[in-house]
């Protein structure tokens, strides 16, 4: 399996020649300052934006050669802060994740119901499956939206800032979940703002000015000179055991 690979992506917007490979079974965190092209790259890799130059390959085949439902079965995308149907039941929201398998006229079968149960279970959202989405807290809602993304049983999961607006406890839940999902064999690519969350990923890629300027294990990438260049001179990095820990000392 070749993974999900961006090759020489130029445009749209900020991207100026990006190569990036997401392998199955790994969590790759995408870091970078505002405007560096993180979200654009994620959308290009999800097949939602077409690059001006370069190509995205999904398991060694060009992404644009896939049919839309076929692509939807392999890749799940969770936007940051997208709209959500407040008046739908949690279970109904999660079932929408089965659309790539059902198409417009397909009928739901046992496999679909199993996948929905699994997605609710793995995200810890089973307890509120009968509630309306609009009645949940931000953290609960994010877990449901993640369950929706997982219900299609994708091989790759692309998430745009999945921990934004969540309190520390819920950030921990989501981050722990991403690690577990990668452990189950999914390729997980997440745009993150917090370098300390990125430190928990298997690999980190840093975007600056539309290019990948660093890529590798968190301990190799999250170094003070690079982070100070990206975020300002007040950034400090200490080691907590093996793991880098980033804080601000303005």
């Amino acid at each position: 399996m070749g993974g999900l690979e961006a090759r020489g992506i130029v445009g749209p917007f900020a991207l100026k020649g990006v190569d990036l490979l997401l392998r199955p079974g790994e969590w790759l965190a995408l870091l970078g300052p505002n405007g560096s092209g993180k979200t654009t790259l994620l959308r290009v890799m999800a097949g939602l934006l077409r690059p001006r130059r370069g190509e995205v390959l999904l398991e060694e085949r060009p992404l644009r050669a896939y049919g839309s439902y076929e692509r939807g079965r392999l890749l799940a995308y969770l936007p940051q802060n997208g709209p959500y149907p407040e008046g739908l039941l949690v279970e109904e929201v999660v079932r929408l994740g089965r659309l790539p398998h059902l198409g417009l006229w397909g009928r739901e079968g046992g496999e679909d119901r199993e996948a929905v149960d699994w997605a609710l279970e793995v995200t810890g959202a089973s307890a509120f499956r009968g509630r309306l989405l609009g009645t949940l807290s931000g953290g609960e809602r994010q877990r449901v939206l993640l369950a929706r993304a997982l219900a299609g049983r994708p091989r790759y999961l692309l998430l745009d800032e999945p921990t934004t607006f969540l309190d520390l406890a819920h950030q921990g839940v989501v981050v722990g979940l991403l690690r577990r999902l990668a452990g189950m064999g999914l390729g997980v690519l997440s745009v993150l703002h917090d370098p300390n969350q990125a430190a928990l990923a298997h690999r980190v890629a840093v975007l600056e000015g539309g290019r990948v300027v660093a890529e590798g294990g968190p301990e190799a990438v999250l170094q003070e000179p690079l982070l100070a260049r990206l975020y300002g001179a007040g950034v400090r990095v200490v080691r907590l055991g093996e793991r880098p820990h980033v804080y601000l000392d303005p």
Binding site: L75, Y77, Y84
Partner: peptide, 10 residues
Amino acid sequence: LGEETAKSLG
């Protein structure tokens, strides 16, 4: 779920 998500679902 928004147009982007709908599109990503195929």
